[in-house]
Design a protein around this nucleic acid. Structure first.
Lengths: 154, 154
DNA sequence: ATTTTATGGCAATAAAATTGCTTTGGTAGT
DNA sequence: ACTACCAAAGCAATTTTATTGCCATAAAAT
């Protein structure tokens, strides 16, 4: 499936306003509501749209500490990796877990935690005990001038 | 403002299903539609909910390369930093830009690009030329077993 | 225990989504 | 260039959903 300028506009807008009404969206792209809705549905079914989410304010929820953690593994076996991923999936403070290239580490985690006590607890009682974790290097986020999930549309 | 179990449930659900209808949401938390909607509106106005977005499929859009880039600056002056952030804000391939602690780097970028050619172009023609950028170290994402923005609710 | 306040439920109204049908516009073939 | 065809837009009717005011109820405070 390919998409034209209308689809592009739709995707751009709903990436920013996920709950815009179909009528407003239709108006924004200069199309009447019915074909606009049909296009959105098509884009959903074709898999261009993975879903819709509400973005919450971390600070309001008492989560003021964001950290990127570079995790090294001792052995690079599938078992190690699968086990690590399964364990890390249980941790609600882990927002992202990426297997990455580079000499520095094997995994890059993005975690969000209440405070330093919570961070210490995560590091010592949850992350380090996982089999195969041989090294962890943490960076704390001071500020995030850009933080989006809106993809550039070609 | 504080919130009770209903609010918690609402936040948990809309973090996953940002476009759930109020009626479905009400049913899911065992509340009638009117108070349910009132709570959602309150949460929005109180700032717990930053907004709603559609999540797009990066691969479908031809964006198959995700990279984390650690950027070092030569001088740690506010001018350097402000200028860097302003320049980087113009780059649509930059999904995140974090000022971070750690000896390794000053900024951590998360970028998404079509392919290696695009990456090379970004690195050489966009990132490196910015005043003060003294070093860049890139890691490529092989897979992301966890990739969410859903915050854990206390 | 009584008053007060906050919150849930109901019902009516308004708005939005959804669907079938018609019409238009653009494309290909002669 | 004309005609036939296909795809997509617009319209209108229907269904579903959101929204609001009002009343009832439960919790909290005095």
């Amino acid at each position: 499936m390919k998409f034209d300028k209308y689809d592009r506009l739709i995707l751009e807008i709903i990436q920013q306003q996920g709950r815009i009404s179909n009528q407003e969206l239709a108006e924004a792209i200069n199309l009447s509501p019915s074909p606009c809705l049909r296009r959105v549905k098509q884009l959903e079914e074709a898999g261009f749209i993975d879903g819709y989410v509400a973005l919450l304010d971390a600070k309001k929820l008492g989560l003021s500490l964001v950290s990127f953690m570079q995790v090294s593994m001792d052995k690079h076996t599938p078992e190690r990796f699968n086990h690590f991923e399964a364990e890390i999936a249980k941790c609600s403070e882990v927002l992202e877990c990426h297997l990455v290239t580079g000499q520095t580490a094997d995994y890059l985690l993005k975690v969000i935690i209440k405070d330093m006590d919570g961070f210490q607890h995560f590091l010592l009682n949850k992350l380090t005990p996982i089999d195969g974790v041989s090294g962890v290097q943490s960076s704390f986020v001071l500020k995030s001038p850009i933080n989006t999930r809106a993809l550039p549309i070609l």
